[in-house]
C-alpha cells in the first residue's frame, strides 16, 4: 500500500505473536514527517518489537508497516539495506564497534551507503562537531563515557541524513544529567526536520516536554496523547494536531493538497 507522503512511518493493523503472552495486537500508528513522538510503555509492552518491525529486522504476522516508500510486505534484502540507510537507529546499549574509532564508527554508515572518501571526511567531521565529539574522533568506544558513546551512536544514526530516527531506550543506561543532554540532542536533530520516534519506559521523563506520546501496553496502543484516530488519514492531515505540526515544521501550508499518492 502507498501512504500519504506526509506520513514517514505508518503502522497498520500490525499483529505479531511470540508465544501466548508476548507480542503486538492490531497496532496502528502514524508518524508524520518532522514529528517527535515518544513511545511509552512498561518493559515487555512491545516497544522494542514495534521498533524492530519499523526498521524491518522482523516482520508482522499480519498487518503492514510502511516507512516512506518501503512496505513491509514487499521487502527484499537489498531494499531492507536501502531502508536502513534512510532510517537512523539508536539503542540503549549504543551498539558501537569496539575495534573502530569514533570516526570510523560514524563513517561506517556513509561507507555502507557508498559515499566517496572526501564526502565521508567532510560529513563525519561536521556531524562529530554537531554532537560535540570531534576532539575524540580517534578514541575507541571503551575510552568514552556512556553519554559520549550514545552521542557517537546518534552521530552514526544521522550520518546519512535519515528522514526518521528510531531510538530504543536511548537514555536507559545514562544518568539524569546525561539523559537530559541526549534528549536535547534528539530535539535539535528533530528541529532540523528529522522525525524522531523514541521508545522509553520512563513516562515521568518525557511528559514534561509537550510532545506527542503514544502509550503501549500489553502489545496494544492504549492511548495517543494527540488523539489521532489511525486509518483516518484525511482528518489527520487536514485537521489534526499532527497535520498542524507537520505544517509548522515544513513551514508551508500543506492543507488542500489532497490525499497524496
Amino acid at each position: 500500500m502507498e501512504q500519504d507522503q506526509r506520513i514517514i512511518v505508518g503502522v497498520y493493523h500490525l499483529s505479531k505473536s511470540f508465544g501466548k503472552h508476548f507480542g503486538l495486537h492490531d497496532v496502528n500508528l502514524q508518524v508524520a514527517n518532522g514529528e517527535f513522538v515518544f513511545l511509552v510503555g512498561p518493559s515487555g509492552a512491545g516497544k522494542s518489537t514495534l521498533l524492530r518491525m519499523i526498521y524491518m529486522d522482523d516482520f508482522p504476522d499480519s498487518g503492514q508497516v510502511v516507512v516512506g516508500p518501503y512496505v513491509s510486505t514487499r521487502m527484499k534484502s537489498s531494499t531492507i539495506a536501502e531502508l536502513r540507510r534512510k532510517t537512523g537507529i539508536v539503542f540503549q546499549d549504543f551498539r558501537l564497534l569496539g575495534d573502530k574509532t569514533v570516526f570510523e564508527n560514524v563513517a561506517l554508515a556513509l561507507k555502507a551507503a557508498g559515499a566517496g572518501l572526501g564526502e565521508i571526511k567532510k560529513q563525519v567531521t561536521e556531524i562529530l562537531m554537531r554532537v560535540g565529539l570531534y576532539h575524540k574522533r580517534y578514541d575507541f568506544p571503551h575510552e568514552l563515557s556512556g553519554g559520549e558513546q550514545q552521542r557517537v551512536a546518534i552521530a552514526r544514526a544521522i550520518a546519512n541524513r535519515p528522514a526518521v530516527l528510531l531510538a530504543d531506550e536511548p537514555t536507559g543506561n545514562l544518568d539524569a544529567v546525561v539523559t537530559r543532554s541526549i534528549l536535547e540532542l534528539l530535539f535539535k536533530i528533530n528541529a532540523g526536520g528529522t522525525a524522531v520516534l523514541m521508545a522509553t519506559h520512563d513516562l515521568e521523563l518525557v511528559k514534561s516536554f509537550g510532545q506527542r506520546i503514544i502509550y503501549l501496553e500489553g502489545g496494544r496502543v492504549v492511548k495517543d496523547s494527540e488523539m489521532i484516530y489511525v486509518g483516518d488519514l484525511r482528518r489527520k492531515i487536514d485537521g489534526s494536531p499532527v497535520g498542524r505540526r507537520a505544517e509548522r515544521l515544513e513551514g508551508r501550508d500543506i492543507r488542500g493538497e489532497g490525499e497524496g499518492r
Binding site: S77, L108, A112, R156, A159
Partner: peptide, 14 residues
C-alpha cells in the same frame, strides 16, 4: 556477530 549486526543496521547490503 556484533559488527555484522551493526553493519546491517546502518544499511550495509549483504
Amino acid at each position: 556477530q556484533r559488527s555484522i549486526e551493526v553493519a546491517r543496521l546502518v544499511g550495509a547490503t549483504n
